[in-house]
Amino acid sequence: ECTYFTMKEIKRLYKRFMELSLLYYSPTELKKMSRPTLPPHIIATMAELKVNPFADRIIHVFSDDVNGCMTFEGFLNMFSVFNEQAPRDVKAFYAFRIYDFDGDQYLEHGDLLRTLERITRRSLKDEEAELIITKVLEEAEMDDDMKISFMEFEHVLSRAPDFLSTFHIRV
């Protein structure tokens, strides 16, 4: 009930999770633990996340403690958000947290710059990047504090044509 998955899909995800945990723990260790948690570098080996420039951010956002370790619940939650049935506002909420690198509830210049660098792999010139960020701030800005709050972010994304189709991971 808490996810956008059917029973079968959850079972499949559980299998995936267990396979991943076998990379980290020995089978006997695993049996002893009631709720195994996985450190971020193991989760990042998944094919779906390996090439994603935001992989570490995604894991961080969905992890259960400060070190970025993830339980199965967090794991399930992550894929539930990336499911195509998840509504726009949930997706937007997590997208905001992914792009919010310093975690201060606002996207400001630094966050945007890092986002931009990640999606373009630093192939833009500095002045181009600057220009883009100024433009973005100009467009999304409503209250003139030169940072984007979640409200503003959601408003921008609420009409983006392909946000729903791109913020999506197939499992």
């Binding site: 094919a47 779906e48 390996k50 090439v51 994603n52 420039p53 935001f54 990336f82 997208a95 792009y99 945007l112 986002t115 931009l116 999606i119 373009t120 792999r121 192939s123 883009i132 433009k135 973005v136 467009e139 999304a140 972010f153 921008v156 994304l157 009409r159 983006a160 044509p161 392909d162 946000f163 791109t166 913020f167 999506h168 991971i169 197939r170």
Partner: peptide, 28 residues
């Protein structure tokens, strides 16, 4: 919102292939 959209929603999270990812970032 041309620029904002391009910044926030152009990365395709479905991509799971090294070469494709490179292409995609080049395309962006």
């Amino acid at each position: 919102y041309t620029f904002s959209w391009r910044l926030f929603s152009s990365w395709d999270y479905t991509i799971g292939n090294q070469e494709t990812a490179e292409n995609k970032s080049a395309a962006i």
